[in-house]
Design a protein around this nucleic acid. Sequence first.
DNA 1: CCAGTCCCCTTTTTT
DNA 2: AGGGGACTGG
Length: 673
Amino acid sequence: MRLNPGQQQAVEFVTGPCLVLAGAGSGKTRVITNKIAHLIRGCGYQARHIAAVTFTNKAAREMKERVGQTLGRKEARGLMISTFHTLGLDIIKREYAALGMKANFSLFDDTDQVALLKELTEGLIEDDKVVLQQLISTISNWKNDLMNPAQAAASAKGERDRIFAHCYSLYNDHLKACNVLDFDDLILLPTLLLQSNVEVRERWQNKIRYLLVDEYQDTNTSQYELVKLLVGQRARFTVVGDDDQSIYSWRGARPQNLVLLSKDFPALQVIKLEQNYRSSGRILKAANILIANNPHVFEKRLFSELGYGTELKVLSANNEDHEAERVAGELIAHHFVNKTNYKDYAILYRGNHQSRVFEKMLMQNRIPYKISGGTSFFSRPEIKDLLAYLRVLTNSDDDSAFLRIVNTPKREIGPATLQKLGEWAMTRNKSLLTASFDMGLSHTLTGRGYESLTRFTHWLREIQQLSEREPINAVRDLIRGIDYESWLYETSASPKAAEMRMKNVNQLFTWMTEMLEGSDIDEPMTLTQVVTRFTLRDMMERGESEEEADQVQLMTLHASKGLEFPYVYLVGMEEGLLPHQSSIDEDNVDEERRLAYVGITRAQKELTFTLCKERRQYGELVRPEPSRFLLELPQDDVLWEQERKVITAEERMHKGQASIANIRAMMEKAKNR
DNA sequence: CCAGTCCCCTTTTTT
DNA sequence: AGGGGACTGG
C-alpha cells in the first residue's frame, strides 16, 4: 500500500523540525518506520546517527520489529530505538564520570522509593500513606521540572513545601550514598548534564543527528528539555503525537508541549494525518463528534474510506452481573454468526475492578479470554527478590536491596541485628554490606546475630567474586545457595503457586543467561547492565513474540491505547465511572472524554456500549446516570437497546444462561457437520 | 515468627 | 463487598 499525501509529506520533510499530528489509526507507525528508512536510504544518514524514542518498552519493541521488516538487519544496524529512560540510561552509562558517579550504579524502582522515603521521613512528615504518596509525587514533579532540592526549598511557599523539600534533599543524598538512581534521574541527570556541559552536549548532538519521538503528547518537562538539548540548533527531528489521545496528564505528561514546540521552533512544519485506516465511517463520526466537545489548539477531522458501517449499540443492563451476562451472550452469538476469532473482541473498561465480573462470566461460559494489566512479571515478589540479590552483587552500596534480601529466605537476621548494623554503618558513613565486614562489629552485635550475618555476607562476597568472572554460574549458585525453591514452597499458599513462582525464577534466569551470553544480534552484557535493564523491564528484542492465542481481550481503556480490535465492547458507560467521579470532582472531564475517544477509536467494525441502571459500589447500591458521553454521540448512529420487561435476578440468570447454552449447542452441532 | 483480627480504602500505570 | 496492610497476642 502506498503512502497517502500527508504521510508522504511527513516522511519526506527532513530538513527541519517536524510535528506530525497523527489521529487515531492514521498510520503513524508506518510514517515513523518509512521515515527512518528514507533518512537512511534517501538522505545519507547512517543508522547509528538516528534515534527513535518511545515511552514504553512494548512500543520500542514493536518499532524495532517494524523497522527490521522494512530495512533488514544490516541496514538497521546501530539504529537507536529505545524508551526515554533507556536512552537516559545509555547517556549516563557513557558519561558517569562527568556526572561524578561510580560506574556500577543500580536502579531504584517505586517500591524501593516508598520504603526509603518512609524510613527517611520518620518524624518529619505525618505517618500516613496518602502524605507519603504526595511526597513521592512532589519529588517526582520537582525532578521532572528540573529542580534540585535547593531550588525546591527556595520555591517553597508553605511550611509543608519546606518540609517536603528537606525530604527531597535527604532522599537525594541517600541515593547518592547508595550509588543508586531512581527512574526520574534517568531523564533528569542527562538533561542537567547536557545543559551544563558543552563538550558532552556536542558529543551527543553529534551522535544523534536525527531524532524521532513517538507519543509526543505524553512527554513531561524534563523529557522535552532533553529532546531540545539533543536536537540543538540543528533541529532535525520529527515528533509524532495526538493531543486527543493524551490520557496520562495525571502522571506528569504535558500535552502543552505540542503547542510549546511551535514557539520554541518557529520553523516547525506541522503535518496532519487525518485519514483513518482502522474504523468504519460511523465509528469515526461518533469519535469526531464526541471529541469536538473538547477545546482544541489544532483542529483535526478524521475521515475513513472503509464504508459507513453498522450502528453503534448501547446495551442497558440492570446491574453488573447482568451487564457481563449480556456482553458474554452478545459476544458468543456474534462469534457464532460471523465465524470470527475470539481475539477479534475486546472488552474495555475504566477501572481494573470492573474486569472481575466479566472474567467470571467468560469463565463460566468457557470463552477463552486474556486480561492484560494486573501485576506484571517484574513486580512479582520472587522476581523482585532475585533482582535485589543481583543488585547487591553488582553494587554493594545498595542498602535498599540489601535490606530486602538479608533475611529472605529466613536466616535469623532479625530487626535487632539490623538495627545495630544500621547504627554502626551510619556513624562510619558506610553502606550496610560494607560495614558488615568490619572487625569491630563483633563487639556491638550479639554472638548469634553476628554469626548469621557474617556467614551470610561472607558467602555473598564469594558469589560476588565469582560473578565478576563467571556471572552465569554465580547466579546459578546464588539461586541454589539460598535454596530459593524450598523457600517458595514454604511461603506459597499452595504447591501449585510455588511451582508457578519457581517457573518465573527460571524464566528470569533464562533471559539473563541469554543477555549475558549475547547473540549474533546483541553484544554480551555485563551483569550490571542486565540488572538495570531488568529494572527498566527493557529486555532488548528477544524473538519470542507474545503467544497469539485466540482469546477475548479484557483491558482498561488506558491499556488499550495503540491497539485495535474488530469488535469492541466499551462497558460501564455511566456518570461516575466514565467520566470517573474523581475527574468530575476535579473538573477534568476533558481527559475522561479523551479516554472515551481512545476507546471508541479502537473499534474497527462494530462498537457496543453498555451501562447499568444499578451498580454495587464500595458496598452500597447506586443508580448511576448514563454517561454524558453517550448523550454527546450522534444519536442517529446509535441504537439504544433496552430490555423491555423488568425481570428478577433469578429469571434473568436463567434466561441468560439458557440462551448462552442454546448458542453453545448450536455451535457444537454446526461444528460436527 | 506466625496467625488471627481489625480497619481502611477503593482511577488510570510506566519507567 | 472485598482485599490488603498493620497491629496484637501467643
